[in-house]
Structure formats: C-alpha cells, structure tokens
C-alpha cells in the first residue's frame, strides 16, 4: 500500500465513521421535548361541522375515499354522513348506507340486512344530516389502547397511525367510542381519518373541507385566536359527541341534536 493509498483509505474510513455517527446521533430528550412543547404552543387542529349546512350530498365522502385511497367499493370510510329522521309518531330512524358515499338521493331509509323503509315527507317532524370523522381527541382512547405505540398523537393534536408498525390487533378499533376506525383492506392495518394530515401540514385544506360546497366542514387552529373557526368555537354554542367518555373530542358541532348517537 502506498502512502497515498493509505491516506486516502484512512480519510474514507474517518469520513465513513463520522457519517455513521451522524446517522446514529442520539436524540437529546430535552431538545425533543422543547420542540414538542413549542409545536404544542403554536398549533392545535380542530374541526367545525355546521350540521345546518349539510345537505347529505356525500361529496366529502367521495373526496375522502379518493384522496386517502380507501377502496371505492369497500364498506368503510374515514369520514361518513348520517341521516336522522324523526317522525310525527315518535319513530326514530338513522342510516348511513355505504357511508353516504353516493349521497342521500331518496327517502328510503336503510334498516340493514337489505331492508328499507319509506318515510313520507309529511310524516316527518324533523330530519337532518350529521357528518362524522375522527375527533382527534385530546385524550384519545385509541392511543392509550395501542400495545405497540403504532397509534400516536402528534404535538398539534392529530392522532396518526404508523402503518409500518401496526400489528393489526384491533384494540384501538374496540377502544374508540366513535367507531371511526377500521382495518384498511389493502394494508391490513388500522385506518382512520387524520384530518388529511399530509395536506394540512402543507398548508392545504383537508379533502372533505375542499369538497364541501356548502361550507358545512371547516378546520382551524385553536391556538390562533384570529382563526375564524377558533372564533366560532370560542364564541358560539357548539357541542361535541359523547363527551362522557372523557376523550375530549376536538370536532365541534353547530346544531347538534340530542338524537345524534
């Protein structure tokens, strides 16, 4: 080996070692927590649904399925719309056929197992639509339940799933009081709405918000007092779903009815 070769090789060796060390650099927990705290101070995503504005067209569901690549024919969806019908004689109906992917186009109510019931308009006391999605809970039951930490909450409040780490036990699906989770039929891992995290973190709106022609769906940052959505949530009368589970849901509803399950 010539002197020159030796120098070259050792330089390579040192360089390689440094590169390896850089790659393996241990995260300083203090810095990490500081970064998380900073992010937490800046952003908290929240959703606002105005049920008065929803007409049950299902455009949001279509957009969501396309954007998030949930098979079109699969009987599950990250978001869905429910229809509630309460008749004059006190009967209560609710349905969400195919997660309302095709919208509610007639007055037949799906009773499951292939049965339907036709309710005449004049028999109805009240009827309305309620869009649903993951509540990105402040104290998420799903995160608590995941045995491997594949479901986790990011500092800005959104709950995400690591598809590469999920073992597919389904405990999170059982734990979520809102039934928003299911197994993705393609990846065979837990699946749910992420507020389109890949979009909102790039400054875009979630697909469903963009798709809703009636402005029934809005997203906002609770940490920003100037955010119009935050202003509504702070100053108007809004409700959340199933607050008694203690998960502190962050999807707020205008015009929430007692009937809504």
């Amino acid at each position: 080996m010539t002197r020159r070769d030796f120098l070259k090789n050792s330089a390579l060796g040192v360089g390689g070692a440094t590169a390896a060390m850089l790659g393996l650099q241990i995260v300083n927990p203090k810095e990490l927590f500081a970064a998380v705290a900073e992010e937490k101070g800046k952003t908290r995503w929240a959703f606002l649904v105005d049920t008065y504005k929803c007409v049950g067209c299902g455009m949001c569901v279509k957009a969501c399925k396309t954007e998030n690549e949930i098979p079109w024919e699969a009987n599950a969806s990250r978001t869905w719309v429910e229809r509630y019908v309460i008749t004059k004689d006190g009967k209560r109906y609710a349905d969400s056929p195919k997660a309302a992917r095709d919208g509610f186009t007639n007055s037949k109510i799906d009773l499951g197992e292939g049965h339907e019931v036709e309710v005449k308009a004049e028999d109805i006391d009240k009827a309305f639509f309620v869009p649903k999605l993951c509540n990105q809970c402040e104290d998420p039951a799903c995160v608590q339940a995941c045995p491997v930490g594949a479901t986790y909450q990011v500092p800005d409040g959104v709950v995400l799933i690591d598809r590469k780490w999920c073992i597919g036990c389904g405990y999170c699906i059982m734990a979520c009081p809102y039934g928003v989770r299911f197994f993705n039929p393609v990846t065979h891992t837990a699946e749910k709405c992420t507020f389109c995290y890949h979009r909102i973190s790039q400054g875009l709106m979630p697909a469903c918000v963009d798709a809703c022609a009636f402005g029934a769906r809005k997203i906002g940052n609770l940490k920003d007092p100037e955010d119009p959505v935050t202003k509504i949530i702070k100053t108007e009368r809004v409700g959340v779903l199933k607050s008694d589970f203690g998960t502190k849901p962050q999807v707020f509803y205008i015009g929430l009815d007692e009937e809504v399950k």
Binding site: A74, N75, A76, W80, K98, L111
Partner: peptide, 26 residues
Amino acid sequence: METLIHGEFWTLKELFVLPNEYIVWS
C-alpha cells in the same frame, strides 16, 4: 378480495350501525 373489510364477511348489520363497525374481534 381487496375491498372486504376485516370482519365484514361474518358480520350482519341490523338497523343503525356505524359504517366502519364490524365484529372485529372474532
């Protein structure tokens, strides 16, 4: 079948069941 949700095969739904709900723990 890539579109069948886990649990869909053995679950029959009656009345108002949420779209993503199935008998997942079988």
